Computed example of a mutant assay.
Amino acid sequence: MNTVDRFTVDLSALEEVRRRLSTMLGQLDGTAVDAKYKTTIPAGCLGAREDRFQEAAGLRLAHDTAKESIGAIVTHLTSLIDSYRTKTGIVHGSYQDSDAAAKHLMQ
């Protein structure tokens, strides 16, 4: 005799996951802006005689390279989290529709 395994899905938990992922996306937006626009080492900021500070150009280059890497990481994380949030919403909607259909059949 075959038996059907029954399970339940906590729709409120799925919605909470979506909410938290949306919050994370908002925080990453701020991080992306900070990384792109609020970190800079402009020429001359290391002293009036940077020509005597041989490492100044290398320091600015290393900073710019790190800044680009951080930007790429934030972009990747944003894409990953947004994808997961979207998929969680699709799963939530599918379970919600299935639950509504089952209730309709029971009437």
Rank of each mutant, 00 (worst) to 15 (best):
F7K: 07
Q107V: 03
V9Q: 03
E55V: 07
R52N: 13
L14I: 07
L28V: 06
K103E: 01
R52C: 06
D64I: 01
E68P: 04
Y95A: 01
A72K: 05
T8C: 08
L77N: 00
S94Q: 08
M24P: 04
L21D: 07
T3Y: 09
L80Q: 06
K67P: 02
D82P: 03
G26W: 08
D97I: 06
D99P: 05
L14G: 12
D29E: 14
R6T: 15
T3N: 09
C45T: 12
M106L: 12
D34G: 15
T78L: 03
T86H: 06
A43P: 07
L28N: 07
A57R: 12
D51S: 12
H104M: 05
S94V: 00
S98K: 06
R19Q: 13
T78F: 03
K87C: 03
A48E: 15
E16K: 15
N2E: 13
L25H: 04
A72S: 13
T23E: 15
S83I: 02
N2F: 13
P42S: 10
I81R: 04
F53W: 12
L21P: 00
E50W: 04
E50H: 04
L11H: 01
K67A: 00
R52H: 14
A32F: 08
S94T: 00
L77W: 02
I90W: 01
R20Y: 07
D99Y: 02
R60A: 10
Y84Q: 07
D5R: 09
E16N: 15
C45Y: 13
G30W: 04
R85S: 00
S69V: 02
V4A: 10
H104A: 14
G47Q: 11
T39H: 13
E50C: 09
G47L: 11
R49V: 10
G26K: 09
V4F: 08
P42W: 13
L105C: 06
M24G: 09
T78P: 01
R52M: 15
I90C: 02
H63P: 01
L61P: 04
I70W: 06
T3S: 12
A57T: 12
L46P: 11
E15N: 15
F7W: 08
D34A: 15
T65I: 08
A13W: 07
V33M: 10
V9F: 01
K103N: 02
K87Y: 04
Q96D: 02
S83A: 14
C45R: 11
E50K: 05
G93K: 03
T88Y: 00
G89W: 01
A57G: 09
A100S: 02
L25P: 07
A100N: 04
T40F: 08
R20F: 10
